[in-house]
């Protein structure tokens, strides 16, 4: 008969010889339990985030054909894919938050006002509206989402909700790249005061709508 397998350092008395303060605790875990959102609230917020990412992907998909500037068309291609991936990982988090297996494709607007913001962002479809299109997503919505994602990561339970924090970290990193790209495009396209004014007006109008509805989670 073979000897029973014991964990390293375990004696027959079932106690190891290791001190309780192990390598796992260096550096000491300073995170505290408890955050602002419970499982249900986080699940709702993840559905809100997914709603924004999914619609951005679809809207930009529609725009590719009606934007005349070739580098803008091709720049959007990769961003569409990254929004799709963001929506996908957010969806995959939902069953882990007790929403049922089918919840992987659940998206939810926080309120009618935010759905209206998305409709307004999607509205321009003429080829002479690249400024309005790009400003809506890259000057307004994406910076707002970065703020919302970072706020969630800061305020949620740092240990219990770490999987959400991890995936948001990744999305924020990519979204920052998108915002930089959008800014470069707009800086280049808006080369007269009149065009810069169009960009400002579009941004101001959408930001006002966002504030009025409380943003992506409805609780700005």
């Amino acid at each position: 008969m073979s000897e029973p397998r014991l964990y390293p350092g375990t004696g027959r008395d079932e106690r190891t010889t290791f001190a309780p303060y192990s390598a796992f605790d260096i550096p000491a875990d300073l995170r505290e339990l408890h955050g602002r959102y419970d499982v249900e609230a986080t699940a709702r917020r993840v559905r809100n985030f997914r709603y924004a990412e999914e619609w951005m992907m679809m809207i930009m998909g529609g725009w590719v054909a009606t934007i005349p500037e070739l580098p803008v068309k091709t720049g959007l291609g990769k961003i569409i894919w990254e929004c799709a991936q963001a929506a996908n990982v957010l969806g995959e988090r939902l069953p882990e938050l007790r929403c049922g297996r089918k919840a992987v494709t659940a998206s939810e607007s926080s309120n009618e006002g935010f759905a209206g913001v998305i409709r307004e962002i999607a509205a321009p479809d003429r080829p002479d509206q690249t400024i309005e299109k790009i400003a809506g997503v890259f000057d307004v919505l994406k910076p707002h989402l970065i703020e919302a994602y970072e706020r969630h990561s800061r305020e949620t339970d740092q240990i219990a909700d770490a999987p959400t924090i991890e995936l948001l970290d990744d999305i924020v990193r990519r979204t920052r790249g998108h915002v930089t790209w959008g800014k470069d495009v707009l800086d280049r396209i808006c080369d007269t005061e009149g065009l810069r004014e169009r960009r400002r007006q579009r941004g101001d109008a959408l930001r006002e709508m966002l504030t009025a509805c409380g943003g992506v989670t409805g609780e700005l």
Binding site: E54, M57, M58, I59, M60, G61, G62, W63, V64, A65, L76, G77, I80, W81, C83, A84, N88, G91, V104, T105
Partner: peptide
């Protein structure tokens, strides 16, 4: 491929993922 994302909003998620890719 982009228009397929906009023209068929009710398509299954996996389809949208494929079109986005």
């Amino acid at each position: 491929a982009g228009r397929s994302l906009w023209d068929f909003p009710d398509a299954p998620w996996e389809f949208k993922m494929n079109m986005a890719r």
